[in-house]
Design a protein around this nucleic acid. Structure first.
Lengths: 225, 225
DNA sequence: CGAGCCATTGACAGAGGTCAAGGCGTGTGG
DNA sequence: CCACACGCCTTGACCTCTGTCAATGGCTCG
């Protein structure tokens, strides 16, 4: 093991199946790079050269069409992106930029494809990872089509409260602008969505949100028209 | 080989890696069933028991929330659905129903998981299949967020023309109602979208669409606000 | 020929985006 | 320590896109 960063990378699910030797092989020719905030790391459509592993900071994955842009995901350590493009040896399906100063491990795509060929457990881990991502993307797509902006926000807050809440308080990890983009709405509209949720016990003060009435909020997010 | 249906199933990419013996093993305890139009085959959230292979007919995959419903995919022979749920041994992420009389091969989910354990080539085929689906889903999601309904329709027609056109004529495989649901809009709005596209050389008469001006249509779908 | 389904059209309503203005907090420099 | 500037969030006004409801027309099938 060369240093702490590699140890960190080894802990994530898709790499934990690998033995020391194979992991070393995977990391051959890997770059560790730091980027300032606002740096575009990859451009949608470019051929995939690396699997990116985010070790520090925040990365936004986004897509563009017709001079418009939408945020697909906001990623934090420790996670990877571009997996599907790398495995298929095709072009990136999304662009990526840093939202804050970030540290990224860049594993040559070819290494991934080589190791997958010889290591069945690694292939199974890929299957599992891709299936999970597929399912979560299905859910995001469904929410986009079926739920209003306020309902999407309610769902987001409820999920966040399951993961990170202290009592009824949720601490937002994104600023309002980023959260709006992630939920597929304008920043102005996010403000109004928060206002609407006040009726359901959502008190928002900066990055701290209090969900005073979980039951009503759930009811709103699940059954309102 | 037991009959023609199994031969057909053997031809699709994810199964073509399998030898005769493994394919037989996979199909152990498989059911071949016919369903009339409008039959719901699976319900979102139910535990996944089978990988479904559609041999004949048309299947709609859809999701529901808050008494609303949206069409995610419309599938025709020969293709599979539920792959991610089956591989992860978790619940279905979408519901499915027949749109017309259909014939479906139902492979026990456990068989899939067994064969993937012992056959590396099969695992690789799964990786490839999942990655492809992930990318096409990313694209659908992006279109839903970034494009207007008329632009989504234009893209749909352009894709269809690449695949199935005879000269400039495209034959629609779905009726208007289904097409509207697939593109994420109401049937009424689809009518208006077709009207808007008349300005760009789209002449629609029943199931036959003439794209009289591909260049302008492409321009509209890609760069209009 | 009539019933029924599907597609279209019109009128209306609601959701969400855009633009402009104002408020609030934070940090910096005088 | 205060004043100012800057960024971010919010608010209001307006407008576009899309859905809903109702009515109409056209087609198919009995």
């Amino acid at each position: 093991m060369r240093n702490e960063h590699y140890l960190i990378a080894h802990t994530i699910p898709i790499f934990s199946t690998l033995g020391e030797r194979e992991f070393e092989c995977l990391l051959n020719m890997t770059y560790l790079q730091s980027f300032p905030a606002g740096t575009q790391l990859i451009e949608e459509g470019d051929p995939s050269e690396f699997l990116h592993i985010i070790l520090k900071g925040v990365i936004e994955l986004f897509c563009s069409s017709n001079n418009r842009e939408t945020t697909m995901f906001v990623l934090r350590p420790v996670s990877t992106f571009n997996l599907s493009a790398v495995l298929e040896n095709t072009s990136y399906s999304m662009s990526a930029r840093t939202l804050v100063k970030s540290k990224v491990l860049m594993v040559p795509a070819e290494n991934m494809r080589k190791v997958i060929e010889v290591n069945a457990a690694f292939a199974h881990a890929m299957v599992s990872e891709l299936a999970k991502r597929y399912r979560s993307l299905i859910n995001a797509f469904r929410e986009q089509r079926l739920l209003s902006s306020a309902e999407r926000l309610a769902n987001y807050l409820l999920r966040a409260s399951e993961e990170t809440s202290v009592g009824l308080q949720v601490k937002l990890t994104e600023n309002r602008r980023t959260l709006a983009a992630l939920l597929g709405m304008s920043p102005e509209h996010l403000s109004r969505a928060f206002n609407k949720l006040k009726d359901y016990g959502v008190e928002a003060k900066g990055g701290k949100i209090i969900l005073a009435n979980l039951k009503e909020l759930k009811q709103f997010s699940e059954s309102t028209g």
